[in-house]
């Protein structure tokens, strides 16, 4: 029987990199899932939560829960948004309906690579990419969801792709939500330090699981006129 999956694309994918959402749906379908997209969805509330605006975050989280509490399985192409779902309950009183919903939805929400590898046990999606790629560990996926081997295993099963590890793979790219506009110089300096560690390595594409990091990294590379491409994992996994 096909597993029914509800896609939570995240506001950034919806508005800025919609092709990542399409690729995610395609990947899930190739993995044998039936994918639905509920157009009532908007955002998980993370921008406000991380900036300290809890009342606003709670309001947005409530509408997220309205949409998703009835879904069996929720998959997001973002470690950061998936991790936010695990924090949602704390925005509401302990014994409220919302907190109960948040705890239950958190159990059923997965980041894309975690879902493919841990839940479906799928590694090979029949993708092909000629070139060398390096993986950027987005912080919340790595440190809150414990994703490390999963995306790498998926990349290693892409025909033609060679995974070249970046020494500072696990260092923050400097995005950090509002941090990137409140502290632009530090944010960029953090990224430059990270990218410096790639020096001397032949890499065609930098791949990550979060569009937010890719906006930061891609924006800097573009400004520097670098030929290095940035790709979301889902885009790599549908490449043929």
């Amino acid at each position: 029987m096909k597993r029914r999956v509800s896609l939570f694309v995240s506001c950034l994918v919806d508005q800025i990199r919609p092709e990542v959402g399409l690729a995610s749906a395609q990947v899930l379908e190739r993995a044998g899932c039936e994918v639905e997209f509920d157009p009532r969805q908007t955002c998980c509330g993370q921008p406000a939560f991380n900036a300290g605006h809890r009342a606003e975050a709670a309001c947005v989280a409530r509408s997220f829960l309205d949409v998703f509490h009835g879904k069996e399985t929720i998959v997001a192409p973002s470690g950061s948004c998936a991790a936010m779902v695990t924090h949602m309950a704390q925005l509401f009183p302990e014994d409220s309906v919302e907190a109960e919903r948040a705890r239950s939805v958190a159990q059923r929400t997965f980041e894309l690579s975690a879902f493919l590898v841990r839940e479906l046990d799928v590694l090979d999606l029949g993708a092909r990419f000629e070139g060398s790629v390096t993986w950027h560990d987005a912080c919340h996926g790595l440190r809150e969801l414990g994703l490390h081997d999963e995306p790498r295993a998926l990349i290693q099963h892409v025909a033609g792709a060679e995974l070249v590890e970046m020494p500072a793979a696990e260092s923050c790219c400097g995005f950090g939500g509002t941090f990137s506009v409140k502290h632009p110089e530090i944010s960029v300096a953090m990224l430059d330090t990270k990218l410096d560690s790639l020096r001397g390595r032949e890499v065609d594409a930098l791949v990550s699981g979060d569009v937010s990091c890719l906006m930061q990294i891609g924006g800097r590379l573009q400004r520097q006129g670098s030929p290095l491409r940035t790709l979301h994992l889902a885009e790599l996994l549908v490449a043929r």
Binding site: P18, V181, P184, V188, M215, G219, R220, R223
Partner: peptide, 12 residues
């Protein structure tokens, strides 16, 4: 402040 060091993202 973003675009001082990075190209700013555009809406699709």
């Amino acid at each position: 402040t973003w675009s001082a060091g990075r190209e700013a993202p555009r809406l699709a």
